[in-house]
Write a protein that binds this DNA or RNA. Sequence first.
DNA 1: ATGGTTGAGCGTCAA
Length: 269
Amino acid sequence: MTERLRIATWNINSLRLRLPLLGRLIEALRPDVICLQETKVPDALFPAGAPAELGYPFAAWRGMKGYNGVAILSCLPLQVLDIAPDWCARGDCRHLSVALEMRSGPIELHNFYVPAGGDVPDREANPKYAHKLDFVAEATTWFAARTALSRAVLVGDLNIAPLEHDVWNHKQLLGVVSHTPPETAGLTAWMQQGFDDAVRHFVPADRKLYTWWSYRNSDWRASDRGRRLDHIWVSRDLTDGLQSQTILKDARDWPQPSDHVPVCVELEV
DNA sequence: ATGGTTGAGCGTCAA
């Protein structure tokens, strides 16, 4: 038995500010599950009734004051999984994993918000860059120990554009945090612990693909200096079931937009 | 080389 499953991921950059835009995402993509990052809301202040009002009666969130924060909204019943470590022992609300209860069996879903890493791509000079590399390395080690990973999906703002055409100018960005060789090598090693890139599955590696455009451009569409920082990976047993991908570029022109746009994948599981 | 913008929440830090 197979079922269709649509999973969307979006760095919403403040859930409370952009709650109305979630309706637009739902209208455009009709996802079964929505994974959010940078909710920037402590758990006690999370709008607990909002998911059900939007048509997503099952939800989980993990937030803190001011920074970070992740949430999962679902049409399918879910159980929060308590299997992963507190990454880098920071307690900083960058990961939430759940089991989605599907008729065909559970799907293990991981929602990540990887540290951005600051400005200076130097471990010694910039502790935030060191934290980012350590976070990715720790996640790689953890997934490497998961033998025979199956029916698993990993999404999120991974804050790294791994391929040459995941950035607007490869050579210029080799020294810019998000596209440095240690980061791209680290992210690739992480993905290779049992996952395939579900979006690049449909789009050849020589085609430009972005999910984020900086606020610091007066005309983001004209300058088009984007990066692909948001990702959806599926365990290899799910790759043959991949049906389609959508990067909702129009969302960058919504009123008071996030600097990231939603990414969605449909698959048969 | 620098600055450009946004959000949280009231200083400035993080992105």
